[in-house]
Amino acid sequence: MLQGRHLLDPTDFSPEELDEIFDFADQIIQSPAQFNHLCDSSLLATLFYEPSTRTRFSFEAAMLRLGGKVVGFSEASSSSVAKGESVADTVRTVACYADIIVMRHPKEGAPRIASQYSPVPVINAGDGGHLHPTQTLTDLMTIRAAKSRLGGLTIGCCGDLKFGRTVHSLIKAMSRYPGTQFVLISPTELRVPGYVTADLEARGITFREVERLDEVLPDLDVLYMTRVQKERFFNEDDYVRLKDFYILNADKMRLARPDMIVMHPLPRVGEIAYDVDDDPRAYYFRQARYGMFVRMALIAKLLGAC
């Protein structure tokens, strides 16, 4: 039963509950017009304390395509937060007006606090460098569509794994599927946080941390690319030395398996060359499309509309 629940962490829902969402998203993809009025009388509030383009658009598009309406703010400075209002008070007030709340916040754990004060479902749309569970729903749906399964896959995560919340969420969610292995490709300075590797070790999941993408490409079923930003490096020399290791181009794609898929939460800023876009293994734009449908399914399920 998903009605009335919060989604704060990608493991808040069981794999069976996730399948229920993915199955419903598949139904929407098959005949979207059939669901145009599913949430006619509902209102979604988007509380975006930091800028976002595609996640906010994706949620708004999802709600509008279900026939619902959207209110909200897209930066903290244009809200009561600028006057010093707490997350708890903002959420308690907004919940008087809206049926479901989507929150993005620069501080980690803010949506959890929101959920503790909200009588309506709260969806975490990204909290600092911590988690991004609806991106994970998108990612899992994409992998499921491409591979027809979620278990027994070797997932390569490449780029900034320290601050990359999409990667933290993906690892957490994929860890629950039997036979999953991870290859974590990043500069030493940008490796995944300790709590992520502690979880993997506790679950007995095979993973390795490496610095070079080209060395491990042939081993991967899925390559999940993320941005490596210059300002994340401690010095210019390291950035210059390492930046090319984390750029995927058509030459490197020759090393990959014919059925490997390339994913990216987008936006990309140079880490996937444009010459990869026409490769049938490039899944990142299909992934973005799945994002809207899976959010439609999620909203409808949490509202109890289906």
Partner: peptide, 26 residues
């Protein structure tokens, strides 16, 4: 948000490891 209690849960008794209930910091 200073009104929020600092909550930690034990995740590894052997190594004395706790995890923040909000951000997962160890």
């Amino acid at each position: 948000e200073k009104y929020v209690p600092q909550v930690f849960t034990l995740v590894d008794r052997e190594h004395g490891q706790y995890r923040c209930a909000y951000c997962d910091e160890l």
